[in-house]
Simulated scan of single mutants.
Amino acid sequence: MSLDLKISLLPETSQTLSPQHKKLNKLIDQIEQQKQDLALWQNAQTDIQSYIHLKLVPIYADLHGLWFKQMQALWQHLQQEDFSKADTAQIDTKLTKLAQTLKKSKNLNTAQMDLVTEVAQFYAQAKAHSQNKKKKKAKDTQQSFDEASQENTAELEDWQNHDWDAEQWNDVQDNEQYQQQREEHQRKRLQQKREQAERLAEQSLKTVYLKITAMIHPDREPDEAKKIKKTELFQVVSQAYDQQDLFYLLKLQLQLETNKGLSPKVLTDEHLKFYKMALEAQSQKLASQIDDITDSLHWSDRPKAKNMQVKDVYKVIDADVVALKEQVKWEKERLKYMGKVSGVEVLLENNVL
């Protein structure tokens, strides 16, 4: 269904548009573009997913397999060998990151996932124990501070600094947890906005539909020729209502009111407010639908482009393929060192574990 219903395109009113009407026409243009963009993304989505499956999935499978072998090797070394406190902290940090990443993997078998879960649970329990210990130490520290003399102050600071290395790897998890909570909060806010827009669009849809049917209902038309035309239009309107096409119905309402002689000068502020509110709800809903598709096609750690185009997705995929292949090569070399304790020590010395 397509109708050219922008008031600004009507010759008799082109010179009398108010600023509010100009904004309304701008919003109509925006929605027209959004509808085209949504159709483009919907048509491209399947092809892009197939391209991802072909290009990226095999590389991620190799990468996750390498990370699992690294985790397995480090976990065994940690159980069997004695490392220094600083080296143990680095290994703990690495194992925590690997376990957290692999928990989300779909490329590991059941036995491998069992080990990943075991490692992840171990560090989760260690973190909880460390946090409880920190609270107890903080309480004891405060009591000691209240009772201690100035001669004991330096000793107290030394004791506090002594605990920092042991908690270094916990800071990584704390930061990751904060980021996860922040992302979850943003997702909830976005979901609330979407739900609000959907409710508003649904209410507006019914209101506009009733107004249109009141104007064009065939049973109220005595002229047989006009009755036939109104019957056809009524069927189209009913189809648009069933498809929840608020945008089409609202544009049709504007056209019908204009055809009845209700010029832009006569449209009230209440009309303009309602049209703008309804169209903004429709625009937000379309934007959400586009975001849902583009989010599903965005896996990179880099922020998603604000106005991402289909061609941009393919460019990102190709760039990631190159980068991931290089990473796989490096992870294979790193795994060779992790096979022996002496190799792990080399990685630790060079801060490339």
Rank of each mutant, 00 (worst) to 15 (best):
Y51W: 07
D223A: 10
R199S: 12
K55G: 07
T268D: 05
L17W: 01
E198Q: 15
N161Q: 12
Q42L: 06
K139Y: 11
M113I: 05
E349K: 15
M215C: 02
V321F: 02
Q76G: 05
Q160N: 10
L66M: 01
L256K: 06
E167L: 14
E202V: 10
L262Q: 05
Y248P: 04
E232G: 03
T153I: 14
D47F: 01
S263A: 02
I91L: 04
L279V: 00
K315R: 01
E12S: 12
E157R: 13
N175I: 15
Q253W: 03
Q15T: 11
E195F: 04
L108E: 07
Q239S: 09
A89K: 05
H77F: 00
N132P: 02
V208M: 05
A99W: 08
L347D: 06
L10Q: 11
K55M: 03
F145L: 15
Q289G: 06
H162R: 13
K251M: 09
K106V: 15
E147C: 11
E257S: 11
L66N: 04
K276W: 02
D4Q: 09
V328K: 04
K265I: 06
W159S: 14
R194Q: 12
L246P: 07
K103R: 13
L74W: 02
V236A: 13
D158K: 14
I290M: 00
H21W: 01
S130W: 01
L252I: 00
K276Y: 05
Q142P: 07
K136N: 08
L54K: 05
L108D: 03
K260F: 04
Q235A: 14
K315N: 02
Q179K: 13
K188I: 15
L347M: 09
V236N: 08
H271A: 07
T213R: 15
R302N: 05
Q196F: 08
D291I: 08
A197Y: 10
P19E: 02
Q309S: 03
Q45P: 00
Y123R: 11
N350Y: 05
V322A: 09
Q131V: 11
E147D: 10
L272C: 05
L272Y: 01
N259I: 00
A138F: 14
N109Y: 06
A89I: 02
Q76F: 00
A319Q: 09
S283D: 06
E331Y: 03
Q177R: 11
G65P: 03
Q100W: 08
Q181V: 11
W164C: 13
A278Y: 02
Q191N: 15
A154L: 14
W330M: 12
D37Q: 14
F83V: 04
K206I: 11
M308S: 08
L102G: 10
V119N: 06
Q80M: 06
L286K: 07
E12L: 11
V344T: 07
R187L: 09
K135I: 14
T88I: 00
L190E: 10
K103T: 15
